[in-house]
Amino acid sequence: MTPLPVFDGHNDLLLHLWRSGDHDGTAFFNGREGHIDLPRARQGGLAGGFFATWVPNPETMPDPQGADVPVIPPLAHDRACRIATQMMGILTRMARARPDAIRICLTAAEIETARNAGAIAAIMHLEGCEAIGEGLDELHLFHAAGLRSLGPVWSRDTIFGHGVPFRFGHSPDTGPGLTDAGKRLVRECDRLGILIDLSHLNEAGFWDVARISQRPLVATHSNVHAICPTTRNLTDRQLDAIRDSGGVVGLNFAVSFLREDGRKDAATGLDIMVRHLAHLVDRLGEDGVALGSDFDGAEVPQDIGSAAGLPVLFEAMRKAGFDEPLIRRIAWDNWLGLIGRSIG
């Protein structure tokens, strides 16, 4: 049986390829440890997604999942720009070497073309804008290379705004909003057709983007604060604003952002994922909910395990009463509609 096609809001594959020195993506094509490679993507129906560039801190960081984490220090611009460029280069080399397997896409139409050809459709995403200077020159360079989505911050401060620290039992209202540079960044992304990702941005920054941007509000990999009260999740008021803008939220598979107790436990059942999805549908409507797995960047439920396990989630949704048209919207259609409205 052919698996349901999935467009996924977030993965960290490029970080792991970069760390291993695999700049040609050989392990992706042939099989690797972790959550995503080409064989398992095809097995589970993963046909596209946002491929993140995320630059790690040079020192060892505490694990952000399952416990409160002290403030994570900002990155130096020069280092961040060098590493981000290398990660984007990995994705570019992979797509040039194997267009039958993966393609960088700039529009919804290109995504559908890639899917019809059997290739994974990749949207290039920048998670945290430490690689971009205040003059935004790098933004234009990355846009020319294919960048069509970015988050102004990860969970650390940048010159553009303030990321939420990882805190359980706390609201996302953790500090001031966007800086003047951050507001210029949002306006320029609107002009260029680059999606602004609200995941990891604190609540004040969220509302700044909502006031400035003329495009739909998007959180590529976030969950429901009313179920799991961590700073990384969205309050109902934020969800309502995303709905009113015609935006989308992608369900994050990270167990510590799903569970009511915030624990990092791979034995977490899929019922909690279904609860988050049901709440998101209730607040956002059937066209506002998608998936944002955080594959290769988070501990996910062991019943899913990897991209190959995506059909297991859909079966859990069916058992909970989700009908086939809604499952297809969440799996593929809603991201494609949002990309068409936001990017082209």
Rank of each mutant, 00 (worst) to 15 (best):
R275Y: 09
L277Y: 03
H279F: 10
S306L: 05
A308G: 12
L284R: 11
A266Y: 13
L291K: 07
P301D: 04
E286W: 02
S293I: 00
E315M: 04
K264F: 04
G269I: 00
D296W: 14
S293G: 06
I272Y: 08
V300G: 05
D271N: 14
D287L: 05
G292R: 15
D303P: 08
H279M: 14
L280P: 06
D261Y: 10
P311L: 03
V274E: 04
R318T: 05
A308S: 15
R275N: 12
L310M: 07
E299Q: 14
D271W: 07
F314Y: 10
E315H: 07
D265A: 11
D265C: 05
R275E: 15
V274G: 02
A290E: 15
G288R: 12
E299A: 06
R283L: 08
R275A: 12
A290Q: 13
R263G: 10
D287K: 11
A308D: 12
V312D: 03
H279N: 14
R275C: 04
F295W: 15
D261Q: 13
D294K: 14
G297N: 15
G269N: 11
S306I: 00
R275W: 07
V274C: 04
R283T: 09
V289M: 07
A278Y: 02
E315V: 01
D282M: 07
A267T: 14
H276C: 09
D303W: 09
G305Y: 06
G297K: 15
R318L: 04
V281G: 03
H279L: 12
G262Q: 14
A316G: 07
A267M: 14
G288Y: 11
L284S: 08
G292W: 13
A316W: 01
M317K: 03
D265W: 14
V312I: 07
L291N: 08
G285H: 09
V281M: 05
A278S: 10
D271C: 02
V312Y: 03
V300A: 06
G262A: 07
L270Y: 02
D287I: 00
G288W: 12
D271Y: 08
P311K: 04
P311T: 00
G288M: 10
V312Q: 06
A316V: 01
G288N: 13
L313R: 03
H279I: 02
A308N: 12
G305I: 00
R275V: 00
D261C: 03
L284W: 12
A278F: 01
D303T: 06
A307Y: 07
E315T: 02
A307D: 10
R283C: 09
A278V: 00
D287E: 15
I272G: 05
V281D: 08
